[in-house]
Amino acid sequence: MTSLPHPQAQPPAVVARGLTRRFGPRRALDGVDLDVPAGAFLTLFGPNGAGKTTLVKTLATLTRPSSGSLSIFGADPRHEPDAVRRRIGLVGHAGFLYDGLTGRDNLAFFAGLHDLDDMETRVEEMLGRVGLSDRADDPVRSYSRGMRQRLSIGRALINDPDLVLLDEPYTGLDQSASRKLRDILSGIRSRGGTVVMVTHHLEEGLWLSTRIGIMAAGRLCHMEEASGLSRDRLESVYRSVVDAIPS
């Protein structure tokens, strides 16, 4: 796996070797090696059950691997979980949002858990960034799918993470919400943050990525630089990888 030469002298965002996650005899992750340099934007594609969600959860320190090593910005989540969690944010399948609380309360809660200094300003600023300032005092129960997703993104970014992990963030978003998400993601990119995104949408995946990967059956089957990669070529590579696995 070749890594892009990077000007910043900081540890790579992700270094994973032989990551395996077993559920009984089933291997959700089967020996994944991954290098993500700081500032990169990696998009992972793959069919259902390929292990993409498990990989993202493992990078987010929510799941511990059955075997293999992982380091995030040089820190091992097993030994320094807090140091790692301070620098990552996860936008997952579940929004991690409490229906009974308002949008503002949800953000304030997570900002509080991170023990951030200027909590109130950050919360207001984030509400503005995701376009929810006017609905901030309504309970999340009353939000649409797109609004929830936006709030969830705001929650993930409240601690200014250097590594942003996204698990199928475009699902159920309408045009304007998708555009807003894209803006936020390109904002993260331009500020030097690292992004690992899992998605089904080939276009959205290609839009901002510096490199793409294809997962299948718990393994990372294909990695490629995204520059110069056309949608058609990506689709054909994807199909060939997916066809190679049975059932």
Binding site: L62, A94, F96, F110, L113
Partner: peptide
């Protein structure tokens, strides 16, 4: 809310 996971992210 999958709150336990959400809180463990902090």
């Amino acid at each position: 809310a999958d709150g336990l996971a959400g809180m463990m992210l902090a």
